[in-house]
Amino acid sequence: MNPGPEDLVPNPRRQMLEQTLTEVRARVAILEAALDPAHGKFAGRSVWVGPKARTFTEDLTARRTRLRQAAKALVDALEEEIRAAPAKVSPSAARQ
């Protein structure tokens, strides 16, 4: 016998994923901003000039971009897991 909608309970796995996503988003915001002060100093005004300075600024920009992409990928993966997890499950599935 299949449980009816009234027999279903909140999915604890989905709840855990949602809580994890909240925590990850807070940490991602910190990660995304980690290189902003240095990037702002080097990209915004002439702190250091010349070919090596340009190379450094380009490298810093690329690393900042990769960091943000990696952080976004984490959030995206968690969001995908949440979408795949049903909001409600049977009591027996919730106990597993």
Rank of each mutant, 00 (worst) to 15 (best):
R83D: 09
L8C: 00
R27T: 08
A84M: 11
V28E: 07
R68V: 01
R64D: 13
A70F: 12
R14C: 08
M1V: 02
K72S: 13
I82H: 07
I30K: 10
F42P: 03
R95Y: 04
V49I: 07
G4F: 06
R14P: 01
T57H: 00
L74T: 15
I82G: 09
T55P: 03
S92E: 12
L60D: 07
D36A: 14
R25G: 03
R27E: 15
L78P: 00
I82C: 06
P5W: 01
P86V: 05
G44M: 05
R54K: 13
F56N: 08
A43G: 01
E79W: 07
A34S: 15
A53W: 00
E81G: 06
D7T: 01
D36H: 03
L35M: 06
T61D: 11
D59L: 12
G44W: 01
A62Y: 03
G40Q: 15
R13P: 01
E80R: 15
P10H: 10
R95M: 10
F56A: 14
H39M: 13
T57L: 02
M16N: 14
T55M: 12
R13H: 14
V89E: 05
D76S: 10
E6G: 06
A43I: 03
G50T: 04
L60I: 01
A43F: 03
T20L: 12
P86Q: 05
L8I: 00
R63D: 12
G4W: 07
A87W: 06
E79P: 02
P5S: 04
F42M: 07
L60A: 06
G4A: 09
A62G: 07
L67E: 05
E18Q: 13
E80D: 10
L31I: 07
E23Q: 11
I30Y: 09
S90V: 00
N2D: 14
M16S: 15
G44I: 00
E58G: 10
L21E: 08
V75D: 11
E80Y: 10
L21N: 04
T22I: 12
